[in-house]
Amino acid sequence: MNAKTKELLGAYLALLRGQVHSLTSYRASFAVELFSNLGGTTLDVLTVLVVFRATRSVAGFSLIEGLLMVSLSSLGFAMADFAVGNIDRLKNYVRTGTMDAVLVRPLAALPQLLLMDLPLRKALRLVVSGAVLVVALRSNDIVWTPSRVVLLVLAPVAGAVFFSSIFVLSASLTFWWIDSGELGSSFTYGGRDFTAYPVPVYAGWFRAVFAYAMGFGFVAYQPALALLGRADPLGLPSWAGFLSPLVAVVAAFFAAVVWRAGIRHYRSTGS
């Protein structure tokens, strides 16, 4: 690593340190929010359990198979939400002028915004999601092969990259439409809810758009099928689960292009 990169890294680390220090001035609030987030994730998982409790199977999948899907989705989402989730406050940054303040500093805009406001209170979500994944892996009868082990590592990372891209894409929308309100959450939180259940639950054009055109089907459902060794009732081959990193890279590429265009647009229109 050359001196310049080191210096830049130090600059970004300093931003992160500032965020950590800020929290110490709200210790009680931070503790409450940390545990509320823990509760939130637990409730998400409980919701799935309650839904499965009311029936024998959902779209032909049992409770423990469903648990594997929801845990893959929730771990990927939790990582993305932790790293990038606060970008959905972009409209506040634009309205309050933080965006301008960020643009006059000698660092890239996106990492600055992320590190200045890293939602550390969401840290415990990662623990819960990880624990649920362990339970799901142990309850299912998985025949472990080297490729499945690789997939198990890749799938949550790919999910995290994918959801991060969705967060950035949804936030970029506010560059063009400042009053878009909660629209972005249709795709971020909506995407999380979509991936919490097997894709055959959905139907028609809605399934086609969310699962395949936008790629949400490859976050948890296809990798889970590949891990379980189950055939896809919708007819995709078994290696489709291994496409999840590719889908994530494509999404990240889109997000980068749109974010750059968004910054350019912001620069040509002001707030």
Binding site: E7, L8, A11, L15, R17, G18, R105, P106, L107
Partner: peptide, 10 residues
């Protein structure tokens, strides 16, 4: 804030 800015501006 000042010491953070030192790092940000290297």
């Amino acid at each position: 804030s000042f010491s953070l800015l030192r790092h940000i501006y290297r």
